[in-house]
Design a binder for these strands. Structure first.
Lengths: 226, 226
DNA sequence: TTGGGGGCTTAACAAATACTTAACGTATAT
DNA sequence: ATATACGTTAAGTATTTGTTAAGCCCCCAA
């Protein structure tokens, strides 16, 4: 839950306060909005990792807001969780069909809320295009905006090539990427770099990340793991 | 929901029938198990996309089964949804901490179930989800993203040639591959290696897989069997 | 213009490891 | 029994990767 950016949307300030308090206590960065329209504006502005959206709101309701956010490139892949006062089957159906990722009903036990949001966030590791900060687990996160990674709290700015390589490798932790695939992905189809170029970049990454993060598979390629 | 492989686990056959019926109607391929232990076996065998797991079961319960499956390479990233008779906060907490992805409570409206599972399956990003794992039966699976095999829960990384050979042999379990065919497949048409080269690789594989998995056919070649 | 710095690549050599071979042992079929 | 094919082991060879330092290129500032 640390580093998560969460946007809360509800028309009751009391609910916002209650949820904000509990989520901030867990280390999340919390933003709020009071109705659907301002939620969309806010979401585009702050690019949250997760949006908690009340269904019943004056003006634009949650369902409609969700539907619209699913159209926008900035929020197309953002996790959206609905919130409602009662568990009604049709509103659940409508919510999921509008593109929701989960559904919570009030009154909320804060521990349940937090566990549930955690489970959602845990499942969403890699870049979905619009998302800026990607947590790849174990204290390592990647910031696509400024070409930096964070390792154990320390932020390290990486040169472009190194950043591209680590982004590729962490896009699927545990997978072995073949050298030739890395060449294609990073340098393009018609490769014109020497044999040792990748190795040098890998070496520099290892110096910055620690030696045990990137593992060599001789004759094949490299993989990233925690 | 089409093409989804779903494993249902519950100790009540009635529940299994009810859920199976509804999920199959949506085009899913459904497998079932009656308790935690057989669920794990089944999961390793069929490698489902999603597992619906009852919490209260005789023998190994759902929480424990989930926890164990999160340890196994075959099921580490599989979606797991818990099912329980009542909504109790701590069992939800325990469930999520065991690595669950969602939580449903009985009695289940089938439309809600389907919407919810759909939401889970839909948001699984292709590049971050499960590994490309092939189960070849009897506790042996091959991870193509990893150049590794799993034998009885233990993950073994193989050198390239060995991995290529075992991949070839397991591509058709039971079939006898002639030596010369193996040579052509792995080394190519015009590469000429000595007579004993294959034997050495086979030996190393046998050391890692167990002696009884690869059988020799004198004068012909080798075959893989369970 | 010139000099410096950072990033990227290359080259040369060292190190690691996968692959192959050779030599000999064992099993099997005719 | 003997020839033939396969098994086993250890040692050799080839290939791949690690490491380091140096060179180049581009951009920016003096």
């Amino acid at each position: 839950m640390k580093n998560a950016r969460i946007l809360l949307v509800d028309d009751e300030p009391d609910v916002l306060d209650f949820l904000s308090y509990n989520l901030r206590k867990e280390g999340s960065e919390v933003f709020t909005a009071l109705d659907g329209k301002s939620a969309i504006k806010k979401a585009i502005e702050v690019l949250p990792n997760l949006i908690v959206l009340d269904i019943m709101m004056p003006g634009m309701d949650g369902i409609e807001a969700c539907r619209r956010m699913r159209e926008l490139p900035e929020t197309k892949n953002t996790l959206i969780v609905f919130l409602t006062a009662r568990t009604e089957d049709y509103s659940q159906i409508a919510g999921f069909e509008a593109g929701a990722d989960d559904y919570l009903s009030k009154p909320l036990n804060p521990r349940v809320l937090i566990s549930r949001l955690n489970a959602l966030l845990r499942r969403r590791p890699t870049h979905t295009g619009a998302m800026n900060i990607v947590n790849v687990g174990n204290g390592i996160s990647i910031n696509n905006d400024n070409y930096s990674i964070t390792v154990g709290g320390e932020q390290i700015y990486l040169p472009k090539k190194e950043f591209e390589i680590i982004t590729l490798l962490t896009s699927k932790p545990g997978k072995v990427f073949r050298r030739e695939d890395i060449l294609h992905e990073i340098w393009g189809k018609d490769v014109v770099v020497g044999d040792r170029t990748i190795d040098v970049h890998i070496r520099k990454l290892r110096q910055k990340l620690g030696d045990d993060r990137i593992k060599t598979f001789k004759g094949i390629g490299y993989k990233f793991e925690f």
